[in-house]
Amino acid sequence: MDVALGQTSPSRNASGRLAIEARGLVKRFDGTLAVDGVDLTVQVGAIYGILGPNGAGKTTTLRMMLGIIDPDEGVRRVLGHDRPSEIARLIGYLPEERGLYPSMKAYEAIAFMGALRGMPLKEGRERGRKLLEEYGLPVERQIRQMSKGMAQQVQLLGTLVHDPQLVVLDEPFSGLDAINQGKLERLIRGLADKGTTVIFSTHVIAHAERLCDEVAIIAGGKVPYAGSVDAARDRIPAQVRLETASKDGPWRAALPPGSKAEGNFWNFALPESGIEPLLRALIEGEAGILSLSIERAGLHDAFVAIAGEAAARALAEEKPLEARR
């Protein structure tokens, strides 16, 4: 399998066709509502992030979409099919619960995962060796002799060995160090560049902000937001930080209500009219502009505004699966 590692924005791959369409998904476990009316649409070739803390319903939603479990209510279509389990060969799925046979050699583990998706073992072994060499991993070493991070990379390659059209990764960055997280981000971009649809769940918003054009925020089994990263960030006005030579004067009347002073600095939300009218008033009033910066809200700020502070705290306190055991 040849995976390009380009830096093309996933938006270039958007075709208008849907890889995933889920409407009104509901799931209960022992009478407890785990997912409550989730709607999601994911375009072919997109990188799509599902954000939320542990227990929010991310994994249950993914498993319903893939046909691993059936929803109690609602419908879903995957790559145009109503029964996702019947097109498993077109899907690569990395569950949060990592699991490989410890006695298997790395290339055999990849071949075995490919065989579960209909790939002949001989071809799987050849591709497994090639992939391991490409990513600098030992080919002949047994899984039990590998670190957790290396074993996780082997399982990821096994998820991709059969060239799936749709790749679904549940908390793929968990347990990886910073270097390997960077490698995984490049791999995800490369998959999207060649037209593969990638959906991943995460509680680390920075990964989604760097990789995704669109995200769904899940909190308490509901999706209060699904859409573009830009639209989510735009829900919060950009913040302006202004430094003036003068501390007072008629120009102060032009500052938006609620502006906060810190010495010669002023902090306020960007006015709806934009910055130009304010700049004219400051210049005409001889405020003496020494510096001015406009900082757009980040996806984390948008998450707090959309999902609430309690969900944001739970997200910040999230631990990797290994630490929760």
Rank of each mutant, 00 (worst) to 15 (best):
G220P: 08
M65Q: 11
A192P: 06
G221F: 00
D230Q: 14
P84W: 01
E108S: 02
I179D: 07
K260H: 14
G49W: 12
G52E: 01
L166P: 13
G227E: 02
D163H: 15
R76M: 15
T197R: 14
G45R: 09
Y101A: 10
L279M: 04
E317Y: 02
L160Y: 09
V204L: 14
K183F: 13
I50G: 08
A106F: 12
R186C: 10
A312S: 13
P53H: 06
P250G: 12
I294A: 09
K260R: 15
A151K: 04
L40M: 06
G298S: 10
I294K: 13
A297W: 06
Q152Y: 13
R241Q: 11
P10M: 00
S85H: 13
A46F: 09
S201A: 07
E171K: 12
E134H: 12
G124N: 10
D163Q: 14
A14W: 15
A231E: 09
W251V: 04
L184A: 09
D70M: 13
L242E: 05
V44W: 02
L40P: 01
G190Q: 08
E262V: 04
I20Q: 13
N180Q: 15
K260D: 11
L25K: 13
S291D: 14
E133F: 09
A287W: 12
S103Y: 14
W266C: 04
E185I: 14
L131T: 12
R144I: 03
W266D: 00
F112P: 09
E295G: 08
L315T: 09
D36I: 00
I236C: 03
F303H: 03
K58D: 01
W266A: 07
Q155H: 05
H300D: 12
I179P: 04
S293G: 00
G221M: 02
D230R: 15
L100G: 07
L100Y: 10
G190I: 13
A106V: 05
A88K: 15
R235K: 02
G6N: 11
A22K: 01
L132W: 01
S147L: 03
A238D: 07
E276T: 11
G118F: 02
R252S: 08
V35P: 11
V304K: 11
E262I: 01
G274Q: 01
V154H: 11
A151V: 05
I294T: 00
A302E: 06
A254I: 07
R89A: 12
A281R: 13
A316D: 04
D234S: 06
T32H: 06
I289V: 15
V26K: 12
F268R: 05
R23D: 03
D301Y: 05
Y48W: 02
A287P: 11
E317S: 09
E86D: 10
L131P: 06
G288S: 02
L5Q: 15
A151T: 04
E185M: 14
M65S: 06
L131C: 02
S11A: 08
V168D: 14
F112C: 09
T202M: 01
L137Q: 13
A311G: 09
D230W: 02
E309V: 02
G67L: 01
S9R: 15
K194V: 05
A254Q: 05
A261T: 15
P237R: 02
Q142K: 07
L79M: 05
D2F: 14
L292T: 10
F303V: 08
P256V: 03
G149S: 06
E262L: 06
N267R: 14
A232Y: 10
A192M: 03
G158N: 03
S291V: 08
A226H: 14
M104S: 12
K148Q: 00
L100E: 04
I179C: 02
R17I: 02
